[in-house]
C-alpha cells in the first residue's frame, strides 16, 4: 500500500518544529507500524537525510517505550495495543497518516517524536513502592490475599508506563498512571502499611511536575493499551480523601 505521512520533526527540545510530508510506497499490510517507520528511515538514510527519531524497544507491547500520537489517537486507531503492535492493515491504501509526539508540559520533546517521560519515574520514586529492604521478609504464603483483590491489583499493575493516558487526556493529566500504582498497593495488605504517605506524596509530585487535572473525561481509559480502568482513579481519590481527613 502507498501512504502519505505527515510527521512532526523537531531537531531538539528548544527548536521550532514542523510537520514534514513523506510519501511511502509498497508497504505490506502485514508490516507493523514501526516497521513501516523503519522502511521510511532506511529510505531517508539512503538519501543522506536524518532518520525520524522515535522511541521503541521490545516491539511486543510490554516495555512501554513506544509512543506516537497517530491520527488523533495515542498508539493509533486500534484498541488495547501499543504502537509497536499496530499493523498497517488498519489503514487504507492512500491514506494520510498524521504522526505527532506525546504533547504535555511534563513530557518535553527530545527530538522529533521522542519525548522525555522521566516525570513518571519521579512520581514512582516519590512513593510507588513498599518500603522494605531485601531479606528479612515473611514467607510468601504468610499473608493470604483475597483472589479478587489480587486480580484487581494485577489489573492495575499491568500499566506499562507509556504515557498514553497523559497524551490522550485533554488536560494532560497523569491520574490514570498514578492511580494504577496507588491502587495496586492499596489493594494489597503489603501496601496498606504506608498507604497514606504514598498517596499524598505521589499526588503532590504529580501536581508539582505540571500535569493537568482530571476532569473525568475517561479518554485515558479509552486509549490505554493495557485497558487500565478509571475505577483506579476513583480509588485513588478515595485513598487521598481518607489520607487527608485522617
Amino acid at each position: 500500500m502507498d501512504l502519505k505521512l505527515k510527521i512532526w520533526r523537531q531537531t531538539g527540545p528548544d527548536a521550532e518544529g514542523k510537520f514534514i510530508h513523506y510519501p511511502v510506497h509498497n508497504i505490506s499490510k502485514d508490516a507493523s507500524f514501526l516497521e513501516m517507520m523503519d522502511i521510511l528511515n532506511e529510505e531517508l538514510v539512503a538519501n543522506g537525510e536524518e532518520p525520524v527519531a522515535f522511541d521503541h524497544d521490545c516491539r511486543e507491547g510490554i516495555c512501554g517505550m513506544c509512543s506516537l500520537y497517530i491520527n488523533g489517537h495515542p498508539h493509533g486507531p486500534d484498541d488495547s495495543i501499543t504502537t509497536c503492535q499496530l499493523h498497517m492493515r488498519k489503514f487504507k491504501d492512500g491514506e494520510t497518516i498524521v504522526i505527532e509526539p506525546w504533547r504535555a508540559k511534563p513530557f518535553p520533546i527530545i527530538k522529533d517524536l521522542m519525548v522525555d517521560r522521566s516525570a513518571f519515574d519521579l512520581i514512582i520514586q516519590a512513593g510507588g513502592y513498599v518500603s522494605i529492604n531485601t531479606g528479612g521478609v515473611p514467607d510468601a504464603n504468610a499473608i493470604p490475599i483475597k483472589k479478587e483483590n489480587a486480580d484487581l491489583a494485577m489489573d492495575a499493575a499491568a500499566c506499562i508506563g507509556c504515557g498514553a493516558c497523559v497524551a490522550a487526556c485533554k488536560n494532560a493529566s497523569a491520574m490514570l498512571f498514578v492511580s494504577a500504582k496507588v491502587s495496586q498497593f492499596a489493594l494489597l495488605p503489603q501496601g496498606k502499611v504506608e498507604a497514606k504517605r504514598r498517596v499524598e506524596k505521589m499526588v503532590a509530585i504529580m501536581d508539582d511536575l505540571g500535569f493537568g487535572n482530571c476532569t473525568n473525561t475517561y479518554a485515558c481509559e479509552a486509549e490505554c493499551p493495557k485497558d487500565i480502568s478509571v475505577a483506579n482513579i476513583a480509588r485513588m481519590n478515595r485513598e487521598f480523601f481518607v489520607a487527608k481527613i485522617s
Partner: peptide, 16 residues
C-alpha cells in the same frame, strides 16, 4: 518471599 513482600501481584487461589 521478597517479591510478595514488595507487592508483586502473583496469581492466587480462592483461599488466598
Amino acid at each position: 518471599d521478597q517479591c510478595v513482600a514488595q507487592g508483586v501481584p502473583f496469581a492466587r487461589e480462592y483461599g488466598g
